[in-house]
Amino acid sequence: MTQPLSITKDFSLHIHATENGNFHLTTAISPAEQWVPYLYIDHRESYFGLNAQVEDNALIASPVELVELFSGKNTLLSLFPV
């Protein structure tokens, strides 16, 4: 209740490549069901995250998806490497 309003969301993501060439994304801040929709808010290709693959509180995304998500087309998303 006492948090300020914001359009943007800040959270840190841990991204690892998996053996089959996909990427494994996790964050400690909130469960995947919560942050994944924010990530996919502009992603028409996966129907706004409908087809996003969530396993064990982690998002499994293909390289294409990652490029699409973080390509900068999505103005709400920006990456800051830690």
Binding site: M1, T2, Q3, P4, L5
Partner: peptide, 13 residues
Amino acid sequence: LYQSFGLYGIQSY
């Protein structure tokens, strides 16, 4: 300003 209002600021924002 509206952001600092939190949830109460949604309408104005």
